[in-house]
Each structure stands twice: as structure tokens, then as C-alpha cells.
């Protein structure tokens, strides 16, 4: 597991039923592209977050494939419908096999 990998999300605490909300997500990760050379002159192997998914109560909102051209600390912003109260689940998949996730509850009101 890479150092200092920490997911974070920005989700409103409540929404009206059926409302569309904007969600911002970011995970601290170096996103080593595999294109850079180290001090020894050899290529530094690729090590990136290659997939991100967002779900609400088990239903998919967005599923993103990330390539090495995504910047350090991958940032993804998108919209979600909130049909009822429940829980968002956000998951990031690392090249090294690690999986990072975080959840956020939202109320209706």
C-alpha cells in the first residue's frame, strides 16, 4: 500500500427526494505515470489509481477508468440523483491491488 493515500469526498448532508446533487471526490495519490525516469536513469514503474466507482444504496452512479494522464491526487466531480435517503459508497482501485473506500450518508429534507 502506498503512503499517504487518503480518500475524501464532498457530499451535501441532505437533499430533496429525487434531487440532483454535485459530488466532488479526491484521493491523495502520486499517480506515478510510468513515463518518468528515476535518479538511476531507469523508468519508475507505473503506479496509479486505475478505477473509481460511486454507488448509492448499491446502484451505480459512475464508474471511471483512469489512465496515467490523470493528475496527481485524482479529482473527479460528477452529479448524482438522490432518490431516497441512504448511503453513498466511493471506491478507488490501485495498480498495486489496494482498494480504498469511503462512505457518506445523506438525509432527505
Amino acid at each position: 500500500m502506498a503512503d499517504d493515500v487518503k480518500p475524501r469526498v464532498k457530499v451535501p448532508k441532505k437533499a430533496a427526494a429525487g434531487e440532483t446533487i454535485t459530488i466532488k471526490t479526491l484521493i491523495s495519490h502520486k499517480m506515478e505515470s510510468g513515463q518518468r525516469k528515476g535518479k538511476d536513469g531507469n523508468l519508475i514503474p507505473r503506479s496509479i489509481i486505475n478505477r473509481f466507482t460511486a454507488e448509492f444504496n448499491g446502484k451505480s452512479i459512475i464508474d471511471v477508468t483512469l489512465e496515467a494522464a490523470i493528475s496527481t491526487n485524482p479529482y473527479i466531480e460528477f452529479d448524482s440523483i438522490v432518490p431516497e435517503e441512504g448511503e453513498f459508497k466511493f471506491t478507488w482501485y490501485d495498480d498495486d491491488g489496494s482498494v480504498y473506500d469511503t462512505s457518506k450518508k445523506i438525509a432527505i429534507g
Binding site: K59, S71, Y75, I76, P83
Partner: peptide
């Protein structure tokens, strides 16, 4: 970007 059934729009931003 693959949009699921709860996507609020078919819009996404990144860096």
C-alpha cells in the same frame, strides 16, 4: 466515464 442509473447528468470533471 461510464454513467450508471443514478447519474444526475452525463457530466464529469477531472484534472
Amino acid at each position: 466515464f461510464n454513467f450508471g442509473e443514478l447519474a444526475g447528468s452525463q457530466m464529469a470533471s477531472t484534472r
